[in-house]
Design a protein around this nucleic acid. Structure first.
Lengths: 97, 97
DNA sequence: TCGACCTGTGAAAATCCTGTGAAAGCAGGG
DNA sequence: CCCTGCTTTCACAGGATTTTCACAGGTCGA
């Protein structure tokens, strides 16, 4: 069974020892998610951690990058649903699918 | 299937037993890459290993030599993408393509 | 001395990443 | 069902980063 391994200090997220090709933002977002598994995180929290500032009230960047990250994770790990949406609140990262 | 073989102690990189004609820098770079397969390496790391000193902050030597190395590898092994770019970070050597 | 080659640099060209607006899709309440 | 609000995805323009080229200086052997 393929596993996802995240190594922030190596700027890498690996599947079967092979790094995914993520952009900086995508990786930062994934690292942030992975640092708080199973925790429901608001867009505000995610934005603040990844972008390092407060988001505009109508900012949708987090959603867009969640979508991009899902696309790449979904390609490398088709069977797993790693990022769950919590309607009206935010997102949750679930390492075991 | 053609294979790439690297013999640092013989100062050689072989494809099907035939040595590539690489310059010193190109070979050092390839050897450095090959010593850490699948690992994303920053320009700093690569420069430090190959040149033996810290790079100027705006130094692009690594990029230039990656380009030269790719050209020679690409000629000898057309079907393989051995060196991958990780935007904003550095490069990664993937022995199996 | 000459020619062939290697090196590092600057800069132009090519490529990729980012954030945004907007359209399309989905969920839940009534 | 049908609304409404929220989420997902797309396309694009601007910016940032990477790739490639040409060149000047250096080295080495013929």
């Amino acid at each position: 069974m393929a596993a996802l391994e995240i190594r922030p200090e190596e700027h890498a997220a690996l599947v079967d020892g092979r790094p995914l090709s993520l952009t900086m933002r995508e990786l930062q977002l994934l690292v942030t998610f992975a640092s708080r598994p199973q925790r429901i995180m608001t867009r505000d929290e995610l934005y603040t951690e990844v972008w390092g500032s407060r988001p505009r009230s109508d900012d949708r960047s987090v959603d867009v990058y969640v979508s991009r990250l899902r696309a790449k994770l979904g390609e490398a790990l088709p069977e797993m649903r790693l990022i769950h949406t919590h309607n009206g609140i935010g997102y949750r990262f679930s390492p075991d699918g």
